[in-house]
Design a protein around this nucleic acid. Structure first.
Lengths: 253, 253
DNA sequence: GCAGGTTAATTGTCTCAACATTATGCCCAC
DNA sequence: GTGGGCATAATGTTGAGACAATTAACCTGC
């Protein structure tokens, strides 16, 4: 075998739990990811074959394949028919997932705080209505916030939500991330379509983000759908580009 | 059933071909996607159950599930245990896939042309070497290009590739996209890690992109891996933000 | 009219199995 | 020494099946 054979430590899969509510494929994927990120399974190396892992764990091959596929989707592994599965060279960053900025920052151990600048119920104009798949004139909640990270302004967030969310309280919006609040009322956040661009900041944004007027901001327009396929949020965000960027991993289909 | 029952035209799956080299799950996914994008399967509507589609097509349920999963991954469908599978409301854009800008533009029917500004073989500095997982000092090909779309400058592209690609000819690089050239020599492009940001353009970029000095550019740094997991390209791109943005779809895991 | 239990529909997970395709390495004949 | 054929290893595709979990609708008793 041209590449280094895997010698995996006994404890790599020691705590797999068939009685866990967490599916087995997810547990296996998680263990493999940890081993890759920690270097236990070296970058550039080949991992054991699907059959070998299935035999080692006494788990079916389709379940192992499902675990490996998750890591392929994350850009950590590549597979080749007839050869095997390899770990990508170098260190792979974690991609942006479907979370709010608040969650991103909290997960990165950064203290995130929010100032609510605007909170009003409006009649949706035609553009907002079209984006949210609502009739024009329907009520929507419009909020505008500034997000700080460790005391430094990072983003200005402008969001429209359908009228059913009009009862989101200002205090709630300052104390938690928007997606947390939505989840806590039973909304399953499933899909977000994003368009990422750049432009010069407005005078208002310059002031809020402590930038020179006309300086570049990174922008992101996002339309989010829930578990029933309904549009639940239209967001237009402006980020200070020295303090925020988007990481993504693309995997060829 | 609360939502509209599917009444699918006979011809939706008329030309599925069991003898095709294209896998059946891919054919089914493709037909469903076309039907969704054309409105034959309406936005917001529910699709037939997995079992119903499997019976209709005399194809196994795992194969149908694989097809549906592809559309879920594209952000077109959402599934709910106990309820069924729904089409997302509104029109879903196609996400950026793992292609070069040249391919993006060509696929959008835009005439893309390239001017090669720099083409040199260098010894990799420590940063480039680290990113490409090469020893410092190893030869790398450095190219810099300006990409025009329909006669208008869109991007300045700065790329480093490992020394084995040093024989890529200037004429080739102007006549075709980088990824086309790589594929034509057997490189399977599989994964790209991207970091998207913004900054002020440099004087040189201002000139090349016909912008005011200091105006915002959209930036993208990309590290691309091939089918063996090796790093094959480090790209640093600057885009005119009025002429280019990134669309992505995030799907909750 | 409402609440609780039951049933049905549907997706989610896992198992087992077979065959296809690709890639590589080995062996043998020339 | 080289080329072609064959075998092996590994992933890719498809099928069949069983059971679990979730959700909604329906029915019954109060």
């Amino acid at each position: 075998m041209a590449l280094e054979e895997a010698h995996w430590p006994e404890e790599l899969f020691a705590d797999l739990d068939r009685t866990s509510p967490l599916p087995m494929y997810s547990q296996v994927a998680s263990r493999l990811e940890s081993a890759i990120r920690s270097g236990v399974i070296p970058a550039g190396g080949r991992i054991e074959s699907e059959m070998a892992i299935a035999e080692r764990l006494q788990i079916s091959r389709p379940t192992i394949r499902r675990a490996i596929q998750d890591l392929v989707d994350k850009g950590l592994l590549v597979r080749q028919r007839g050869i095997g599965t390899q770990v990508v060279q170098g260190q792979v960053e974690r991609s942006v997932e479907l979370t709010s900025l608040f969650e991103d920052l909290s997960q990165a151990g950064i203290s995130a705080t929010t100032t609510l600048l605007d909170h009003e119920v409006l009649e949706a104009d035609e553009d907002v209505a079209a984006r949210l798949s609502l009739p024009a004139g329907d009520p929507v909640l419009h909020i505008r916030r500034r997000r700080m990270a460790d005391g430094v302004p990072v983003a200005v967030l402008d969001n429209h939500l359908p009228g059913e969310f009009a009862d989101l309280l200002p205090a709630s919006l300052e104390g938690a991330g928007l997606y947390q609040l939505l989840r806590s009322r039973g909304v399953g956040i499933r899909i977000a379509q994003q368009r990422i661009g750049a432009r010069a900041c407005t005078p208002d944004e310059a002031s809020l983000l402590e930038m020179e007027p006309g300086a570049p901001v990174l922008t992101m327009e996002r339309l989010t759908y829930d578990h029933t396929g309904r549009a639940i949020e239209l967001g237009r965000h402006a980020y200070h580009p020295d303090r925020y960027s988007f990481s993504t991993t693309l995997v060829a289909r």
